[in-house]
Structure formats: structure tokens, C-alpha cells
Design a protein around this nucleic acid. Structure first.
Lengths: 213, 213
DNA sequence: ATGGCACAAATTGTTCAACAACAACACCCG
DNA sequence: CGGGTGTTGTTGTTGAACAATTTGTGCCAT
């Protein structure tokens, strides 16, 4: 269990990712500080951290608002994912502890699919990819992915069709895991490339449909 | 010319990278705020940003100190570089504007080598790799590399033999650029892999020599 | 109406002083 | 000499205040 970090920054982070503040929402220092029971200065420190993590956009003299990923952001996020994830998978060892996390994420995804719990399913899918990155044993790449995944969740929040967004990838995750274990990293990496292209297309499709009609 | 960003965060960032505060140096809020002519609160906001960027280490209730990269950090930094740089080079187009930046960095490196200006040479070498990453056209990967490069500079600061650290790579940069232009991205990517392994070994060698006597 | 222009209101940026919370250090006692 | 104890210095957080900037409003002239 990841221990609960109750710092103000993490509380805010969770609440934003959970969709409590819709993307684009302006976060007023005064009212939010009052609501959270902290001072403006303390809140501003948390804002700076979240801003560096890309969860929040800070415009000088105009305050901060919840990040609202654009199409360009989504494209860039997937570009970065294609740089990191397949390579991590290709070089990953089947004996790496992260493989257990991959397996658990797949199973967790399958049960949430049956339960039609799309929120949980989205979390499980992300955990699967997080485990893939963990294969690389690189704190810096993990941190990059953590930030990127959070941004992507914000993009998902704006799309109100979570089933189409997450459901198709449950079987793909299972298949990818099996490819990795039975045919090795490089084969799995190739499969993941296609997977990510499809995933990007799914998200971008829903996204542009959202903006154009 | 990159315009000068005179925010407190960037001022501090530059001064740290330039070695004004040695790695590991404790940064007292009170004295540093006074020295910089800002309030403690403002300084703390800058600290949070720099901490997220990895330039500074923040320990709750114990303050912040300039990051002092360990061997594990250097290993991880090079691991991340090997994930990103060769792939960016492999997929990069010779017509990309960043190629100009690569060329300029190579030439800049060659002149600083003649002048035996190791500080400038280190900057030029980093600019070369920055340009390689820029080939990927990914803001997020560029940001990752920016932070990583800054951390690496801190590691360099602790090694007092900058010539051995930077000089050998001037001719390699030139060669790598030519390989890229004449034989294409994939060939250059393979060359860069070896390059990075050698570079890592050079840094780690100097590093362990430093710690062991 | 419409396009600016000055003014007013609201928000962010920054400072200061104070105190609580915590860590490191020196000291004393057994 | 080891272990508690208090002292000291630092960080964590707050509240209030003011400066700087943006935003909204109403007015005027065209």
C-alpha cells in the first residue's frame, strides 16, 4: 500500500485528478485557501509544485487554473509515452518485481470491466502502464510518467465516454502481458507501439468530436 | 537568444548551475532571503519549484540544500538519457531546425576546446545533446532533459578535472553529427549509444575516484 | 451603437512580524 | 560514559497589510 501523503500538495493533487475541480477551473487563492483551511502563502507553495508537475497552469498575475490539456498536449504525451514505454518493456526482465504489478493491474482491470466501473478501470489501466515504466528501474522516468499520466487523466475527465476510452484495452493489456512473458520484451515492445498508436487515436477521436460537435 | 527570465526561481537556478553554491550546501531561508533581498515566503516558493526540478533537495523541517548527485543519480541520469536521446536521433529529420543548433554547438565546442575554456565547453556539449532531444519536438521530453542536464552539471561541479570530462567528446560530437547527416538517424543512434556508455563511464570513473581518494 | 478612456474593484505578488513545530546541540545527572 | 533534559536555531504556517496588475464598469465622443 502506498502510504497516504497528507501534505497539502498531495491532497490538492488527488482532488484535482479525481475531477473535483474540472479542467480549466480557476483556482482562487483566497477562496480555496479558506476552503482548505490554510493560509494563502502555504497554498501558493503547493501551487508552485503542482504547476511544475503540469497539473495546474500558472499565468503570472492571473492566477492558476486546473490544466486543460489541448490536442497538442495529448499528442505530445503519447509521443513521450512511445519513447519510454516500449523501450522499458523491450529491456525489461520477466523476473522484475514490476511484472507482479503488471499482472495485478491486468486482473484489477478485468474485474472492474465486469463491474462496469469505468473510473476504477481507468486507474487500473494506468497502473498497468506505470508498472511497465517501472521495469526500467529509473526514478526519473517514473517521475516523468507519473506527471504525464496525471495530465492524461485530466484529458480523460473532459471526455464523458469512459467506457469507449478504457474498456477496449483490458484484453489488450492481458495479451500484452502474455506476449511479454512468452515471447519476450522486444516482441511485446512492438505490440505496445501499435497499442499506443491505437490508444492515442481513441483519445484524439473522442477529443476532437468533443470540440467540434 | 533565449530571453533572460529574471524571476527569482531562474536567478537562483542559474546561480546554482554556475556553481555559486557548491552541491550539498545548505540554503538557509533567512540568510539567503536577506542576501537576495526578498522575503522568506517568496524564497520558499522558488525553493519548491527548484525542488521539483531536482536542483535542490528539500527535507521537511530540515530545509533545502543544493542537490549533490550520488553515483546512483548519475547512473539513473544516463539511463534516462539512453532511453531518450538515441530514439530522438533515430527518428529525427536532417531538415529539422534543431540540426542547425547541433551544428552550432559542435562548432562552439571546437572553439572552446582550442581556447581551453572548459566551462564553456561543458555548456556547448550540453547544448549539443539538448539539440538532439529537440529533434523529437516534444516539450515534455525537452523538459525532462533540461532538468536532467542541470543535475548532471551539479555532478560535474564536484569533479575538478573538467578537461578530461569534456574535451574527449568534441570530436565525437562532430563525428556523430556527420554520421547523422550522411548515414541517417538509426546509424547515428547506434553511435550515440556507445557514446553515452563511454560518457557515463568517464563521469562515474571520476566520481568514484573522487569519493575513494 | 461603437470604440476608446479613465476609474473602480478584485486578484495576485510580496513583505513583515509573530508564533508553533521540529531538529540539532550542549549540558547535567546518574 | 550513556541517557535524559533544556536550550537554541531553523523551518512551517499564519494573518494582515500594501503594491502591482488585471479585469470590469461606466462615461464620453464619434
Amino acid at each position: 500500500m502506498p502510504e497516504v501523503d497528507d501534505t497539502l500538495t498531495n491532497v490538492l493533487r488527488r482532488r484535482i485528478i479525481d475531477g473535483e475541480f474540472a479542467p480549466g477551473t480557476r483556482l482562487s487563492e483566497i477562496s480555496l485557501a479558506e476552503k482548505l483551511g490554510v493560509s494563502r502563502n502555504t497554498l501558493r507553495e503547493a501551487f508552485r509544485v503542482l504547476s511544475e508537475q503540469g497539473l495546474v497552469e500558472h499565468v503570472p498575475n492571473r492566477g492558476v487554473s486546473v490544466a486543460s490539456p489541448t490536442v497538442a498536449d495529448v499528442v505530445d504525451i503519447y509521443r513521450a509515452r512511445r519513447y519510454v514505454e516500449p523501450a522499458a518493456l523491450a529491456a525489461g526482465s520477466p523476473l522484475h518485481p514490476a511484472v507482479t504489478a503488471m499482472r495485478e493491474a491486468v486482473e484489477h482491470g478485468e474485474t472492474s470491466l465486469e463491474a462496469r466501473d469505468w473510473r476504477t478501470l481507468g486507474t487500473a489501466n494506468m497502473a498497468f502502464h506505470d508498472a511497465i515504466v517501472a521495469l526500467a528501474d529509473s526514478p526519473r522516468l517514473e517521475r516523468l510518467f507519473r506527471d504525464i499520466a496525471a495530465e492524461l487523466r485530466l484529458a480523460f475527465l473532459e471526455i464523458d465516454n469512459p467506457e469507449a476510452l478504457h474498456a477496449p484495452f483490458v484484453t489488450r493489456n492481458r495479451a500484452l502481458l502474455e506476449t511479454f512473458l512468452e515471447q519476450g520484451g522486444p516482441a511485446a515492445a512492438a505490440e505496445l507501439q501499435d497499442y499506443l498508436v491505437l490508444s492515442e487515436r481513441t483519445v484524439l477521436g473522442a477529443f476532437t468530436r468533443l470540440r467540434h460537435g
